[in-house]
Design a protein around this nucleic acid. Structure first.
Lengths: 214, 214, 214, 214
DNA sequence: TATGAATGAGGTTTCATTCAT
DNA sequence: TATGAATGAAACCTCATTCAT
């Protein structure tokens, strides 16, 4: 019988690495819950199950820890490869798949936490805005433009190629709604996004893919 | 001879009221700049030109002051009456006017400040979300629904009546973009919104109203 | 009957000033006792009878407080005007008076404290060395040189004019001895200084002034 | 093939002893540089090229390490046998040799370090004062008294026999001066000590031995 | 009513020391 | 024996809030 209940990390180096991970995890939860300024380093340490000083063995200070979290989670959360669907499909179908995959992420608490952080702390951390822009925004825009220019030009496809924001806008709006107002009124994001795509791509029917419901 | 150089409020009551206003004003700037947690009461007092204790004569504590600011600014900023255009116009034109008026608000620093506050602090202040929802969101949604149901049903009008978010989404997206990424890349919100309306209302031409450029 | 036992400071400003003095006093004692690094700001506050934060109202940080103490005490302790004796006396007599007056200072605990501080902390505070040099050393040397060059040149007077250190050396040695080894062996500094002056000014007799023993 | 490049100490005991020496050496440098309180055990370990825990294998705690350093260096630095000159020489010449040898020590950084430590930390470490007194002071005084009482009694020799401090005072003064004010003004200690001895021993000429300049 | 000096709880960070490897 | 990751007591400093004037 081993001492540790989960996946016994025997070696010293592995234990240390596990602790580092635990701190990042705990810090994400705490920061996501209370924001940067209101989070206490001691609470992070406690939640990670380590001593107060241990946090400083891995991260030189609070701000560094914060940045590391963002860096560690930004790409995995927003741009994981499974979101890129097979290239032979029609754009509408591909976007639908991407959106659905995005919506599924909402079941992942970490996703909500990192999203909240990014939105609420960005104005006070210009560095964070810079990182986020380069890692997520720029790539997403490039991806959308790339997809749209491969298509026969319709009014909508030309509009989206110029302003990819228009494609994403309802996703962002729904996200923020969910973040802020889920207590007031739920929003059926899946339905909304279908309607949204119906407007942008009137020639196709959303029902084609509806059966793959979950 | 009066003490104050501008608009001398002689009576005691007027002076007190003026001080209260000054504190709210100063607090908005400071909160908008640094966020709730990082703003110091002393800085607010200094910027308002009053003593540290005076703030507590008007607001029982920091959190109360914060809520008062939001309440004081939310309606004037988001729902000022001039934004409601003449009812005889076509919906597309009316939305265009509302959007344009909204865009003009970006020149007002107070607008940016209150917007930043609402977005960044809402997740930590559920009460704030509640207030904001009732004062701004609910009304806006009701207004849009009302406008759309008066119209002959097109696919787009039906979609918007169901999900008014779809109409507003690009405005929100553009707003957040401007708030976060104006340092990275400017966004031509006016053009984007025109394109957006062109998609939703394909039968009308944006050019109709373009000359009222401003 | 008043509340405060000593000199009741009624006005607000006076109270504040009194508190500042109390902090300086307490800090001198604590620093003198334990040295800069080992002294806790909280202990200073407690000894001064004020809250922890009050210290920071008067001195921006620990180092500033330390420097202020040195500046506040250096001149009063080392160069008070009563030490400058009547100019009509012979140099030997004048030095004897100066030395005696210096020795009397040892009864003043503040003198011991500031002396200890200056000696022990100077190597870690070059700024302190600079201040001390300008305020105390330079003036003392200039004074001695001035006195000696007014005299008929003897071998000793010429030597002292060139190296005023030679006149002061036994004082410093005795001071350090007292500071460090008073627990091991007392030193009769008064007698030692008399012998010292007898060597430097062999033509005069020490007995002249011995009766004014205290 | 040995692990260490210099003076390969093969045996386990030798290695351990070498490590102990390295720690003492490193600790002296660090303590001398920053003082007891501001020196970090980790820096000592790093400078000694050993792990943080290794220090504690040799010295039970920081204070013990500090005392060991003093004990280890005090006698070698202040009372090395080469300073005791041939007994057939005149006292003035012997003192001059001793002084000169002492002055040469200033080229040795270790000497400066231990000196700084002794002066600055003694008031906080009574134990240190005790050790220093017994190992250095008492012996020095006994030596001087011994030398002087072997001489024909002159006024100066009698004075020095009673107060050996008078002989040493300029050396101490010059030492402290060099330690504290070398940045402000250099002091020609060699010349000063010659002048000093000229005063104490007027019958002899300093020039007798000047040729053995270096 | 208005002030700002005073307070002390609470936050971040450091570092001597321990102990499993 | 040697290591350095881990710990937590303790230090400095901030700032929301109070209260005497």
């Amino acid at each position: 019988m081993t001492k540790n209940s989960k996946a016994q990390p025997r070696s010293r180096a592995e234990q240390t690495e596990a602790r580092r991970k635990a701190i990042l995890e705990a810090a994400l939860e705490e920061f996501g819950l209370k924001g940067f300024a209101m989070t206490r380093m001691e609470d992070i340490a406690a939640k990670a199950g380590v001593g107060k000083g241990t946090v400083y063995l891995h991260f030189s200070d609070k701000e560094t820890l914060f940045e590391e979290i963002i860096k560690a989670h930004l790409v995995p959360v927003f741009l994981n490869p499974e979101k890129a669907p097979a290239p032979h499909l029609a754009p509408r179908v591909r976007f639908e798949k991407i959106f659905r995959s995005f919506l599924k992420s909402f079941d992942n608490p970490k996703f909500i936490q990192i999203l909240t952080l990014v939105i609420t702390e960005m104005p006070r951390f210009p560095k964070l805005a810079e990182i986020y822009y380069q890692l997520v925004i720029e790539r997403s825009i490039a991806l959308i433009r790339d997809l749209m220019t491969q298509e026969p030009p319709t009014p909508a496809s030309r509009a989206i190629a110029e302003f990819p924001h228009l494609l994403i806008a309802p996703v962002l709006t729904g996200t923020i709604w969910t973040l802020l107002f889920s207590a007031q009124k739920k929003l059926d994001m899946e339905k909304m996004l279908t309607v949204h795509l119906d407007i942008l791509f009137p020639e196709t029917s959303a029902t084609t893919e509806v059966q793959c419901h979950e």
